[in-house]
Design a protein around this nucleic acid. Structure first.
Lengths: 173, 173
DNA sequence: ACCCAATGGTTACAATTGAAACTATTTATT
DNA sequence: AATAAATAGTTTCAATTGTAACCATTGGGT
């Protein structure tokens, strides 16, 4: 009885199944990290401002680029138009956004922060930056640059590898 | 009429609201990157093996550490016990997992891959590693090490910053 | 032995999210 | 001008996920 039971024997070196350790697997690690960060932020925004992450993202882009249409907002926030539609509804309800319609193309809406929305944004933005600062405090200055660069590279590559229908990369327009 | 309307005037330098660009904001970027990667992988696993990400994670840890309980699986996969319970149900239904009960503590289950499950795992694992390789191909060897290190640091920091009730960091046991 | 708190795990219900279909309007084609 | 195809955005319905409540079993005190 010397090791022929495949459930007991040590796997062959070079065996892929043997090399994979979830705790070092980059996609897994990215997901866990991103989740902790997002949930931690989401919790704070929700508690203090009644803002969801999608709503916060929309406010952030509209603060910088007023009068975008819903679809333009979607592009800049990496959300789909349904998510934008829903988040916009919430922001309109809380009067943090105003919507007008492009005269000349009445399908197109133009979104911008209301004065109230702008005031809220001015309170949220510093918190967001503080959180980011606190997170990056664990890194040296050069690591911070490196981080941005690595994310750039990985993002580009991830898009290229992504073979889903309609996923970013081969928009048919 | 020289610039007193706050909605038109250029924000003060140092104004947080002015410094925040969503497209450079690390939490946002991590989230977008992680989403592309996860969805791209999830799509492949679902198509080729009928596996969800939670199921795949469970298989990965059980391949390495057989006979964990559901809660131990939860700890090693960063999922909560409800998610594990559901994913396990699916894996049992597809006969990729077998469950026995710890005799001596009949609450505790012991989970392990069935031979079928093991066979599936041996086909999935190489794909997972190939994807990771392809993703990391965009990086030099030293950048790869750096990436793991940066994720370590950020993860640690993110946990420390996370003030949610019951979130990882101050488990009361 | 008995009671109460803690633990492992599942279930039920609510909230979120995703995919597809739909309305309204505009643009292109003939 | 009429029809078809495309675009902006919303709605609907299904699937996923989160939260809380819920058994069952165990461990600890008394």
């Amino acid at each position: 009885m010397s090791g022929t039971d495949p459930s007991i024997v040590t796997p062959q070196p070079g065996d892929a199944a043997d090399q994979l350790h979830l705790e070092h697997f980059i996609p897994y690690r990215l997901s866990v990290l991103s989740n902790i960060v997002s949930m931690s932020i989401a919790d704070q925004y929700e508690r203090e401002f009644g803002l969801s992450i999608p709503q916060w993202r929309i406010m952030a882009v509209l603060a910088r680029y007023p009068d975008l249409s819903a679809i333009e907002v979607a592009e800049r926030t990496a959300m789909d138009k349904v998510a934008v539609s829903r988040a916009v509804r919430g922001l309109l309800a809380s009067r943090r956004l105003v919507r007008s319609y492009d005269q000349g193309d009445r399908r197109r809406s133009m979104l911008r922060l209301s004065p109230t929305g702008h005031a809220v944004y001015k309170r949220v933005a510093p918190l967001a930056l503080q959180y980011e600062q606190a997170l990056l405090d664990s890194l040296g200055a050069s690591d911070r640059q490196t981080l941005q660069r690595l994310i750039d590279r990985l993002m580009e590559r991830a898009k290229a590898l992504d073979g889903r229908p309609g996923a970013t990369g081969s928009g048919r327009s």
